[in-house]
């Protein structure tokens, strides 16, 4: 594992994720997705303020990943609209949504196994920047993520946590206004989770974030407002404290056991 640590200044910027006080960046109205007769997401009204960091939680099959796939254009919604940064992006293809400023890391790591770490960042940045500036962005990200020693390695040869960082780094290279992260710390060791938290706080200074996570420790470290999905609907939206105290949430999501890893 590499030795660099995320910038310490990140910890001073927690206020950026204080709550949905800013102007609306993303809004969904009545968003629904059916797969045949299965209702994966039903009538979701969701709003995210500019600069916010929001966590989505919910049991498996609650519709979180489907929600993400609709936001990023990977799945067309059955009904409802998605408004992003003042424009209607409902049903737009993924590449156009990406150009408008939404970056995503899917649940299953999706990287290019035969390409190097450097190439990942370069290609991500080169969409909007010329070759020289894209190379500079790639170098900067290699340092920031502590992957400089692995720059020329094929991503297929990296450890799971490193692959996750590569994918997070790509969303950063995109210079998105909103980054969607589906389980960014899955498979990471505790120290790696802590580094990821620091990294994401740093990202959140300039970018809004929505993060799907199961790791309660991670969420309590990072989240302001938490949105709970259950059976394709939003169950509750509140601070982590209130969510954990909510008896309905405890029943549907956490079961009888206490929260924790």
């Amino acid at each position: 594992m590499s030795d660099a640590s995320a910038p310490s200044s990140a910890f001073q910027n927690c206020t950026a994720s204080a709550g949905p006080a800013g102007k609306t960046l993303l809004e969904t109205r009545g968003l629904s997705k059916n797969f045949g007769g299965v209702k994966a997401v039903t009538d979701v009204d969701f709003r995210l303020g500019r600069g916010e960091l929001r966590c989505l939680i919910g049991p498996n099959g609650a519709g979180k990943s489907t929600f993400f796939k609709m936001l990023s254009g990977q799945l067309p919604p059955t009904a409802g609209t998605i408004l992003f940064d003042g424009s209607d992006i409902t049903g737009e293809p993924p590449h156009r949504i990406a150009r408008l400023g939404i970056g995503i890391k899917n649940q299953v790591p999706s990287v290019w196994d035969g390409l190097s770490v450097y190439e990942h960042f370069f290609i991500a940045a080169h969409r909007r920047l010329g070759a020289r500036r894209a190379a500079a962005v790639a170098d900067e990200l290699l340092m920031k993520l502590g992957l400089a020693t692995l720059a020329r390695r094929d991503v297929g040869a990296l450890a799971h946590g490193e692959r996750q960082w590569v994918e997070i780094g790509m969303t950063m290279a995109q210079d998105a206004k909103l980054i969607l992260l589906d389980e960014p710390t899955a498979g990471m060791a505790t120290d790696e989770v802590e580094r990821t938290v620091a990294l994401l706080r740093d990202v959140n200074v300039s970018t809004s974030l929505i993060i799907v996570e199961h790791d309660m420790q991670f969420i309590s470290m990072i989240a302001g407002i938490v949105t709970v999905f259950h059976q394709g609907r939003i169950l509750i939206e509140a601070t982590m404290e209130n969510v954990l105290a909510n008896p309905v949430v405890r029943e549907v999501y956490l079961g009888a056991g206490r929260p924790g890893r």
């Binding site: 990023s72 990977q74 293809p93 993924p94 590449h95 156009r96 990406a98 150009r99 970056g103 995503i104 899917n106 999706s110 990287v111 290019w112 196994d113 035969g114 390409l115 190439e119 370069f122 290609i123 991500a124 080169h126 969409r127 909007r128 070759a131 894209a134 790509m170 995109q174």
Partner: peptide
Amino acid sequence: APFGRVLAAIRENERRVELLGYDA
């Protein structure tokens, strides 16, 4: 060249390329 690297990326995982804003 960058164009060739994008093509290689499409070979490896096309969806990822589109999610970065490229029209694969």
